[in-house]
């Protein structure tokens, strides 16, 4: 499972980072990016789904293997 942030849509609400700081990092402006290539380590799948659900911009999506 991979998690990705669509940079065109992200407006920096930072909800993803608060829900799952293991999966997202923020730049100086507060825009989010997935950590590494977005691979979700085992056990963090639920957090990845929560991040998707809470992003008001609908900017986060999941790629299932």
């Amino acid at each position: 499972m991979k998690v990705k942030v669509d940079q065109e849509k992200c407006q920096g609400h930072n909800r993803c980072f608060v829900v799952a700081s293991e999966l997202f990092e923020l730049d100086d402006y507060g825009y989010a990016h997935e950590v590494g290539d977005g691979t979700v380590p085992p056990g963090l799948e639920e957090k990845a789904r929560l991040a998707v659900a809470n992003c008001p911009e609908r900017a986060i999506y999941i790629e299932e293997d």
Partner: peptide
């Protein structure tokens, strides 16, 4: 509540800059 994509700070390009 776990599912809460509220837009109290607006949404889109004017998302509240002071939200944090």
């Amino acid at each position: 509540r776990e599912f809460n994509p509220h837009i109290a700070f607006g949404v889109g390009i004017h998302r509240c800059a002071g939200s944090n």
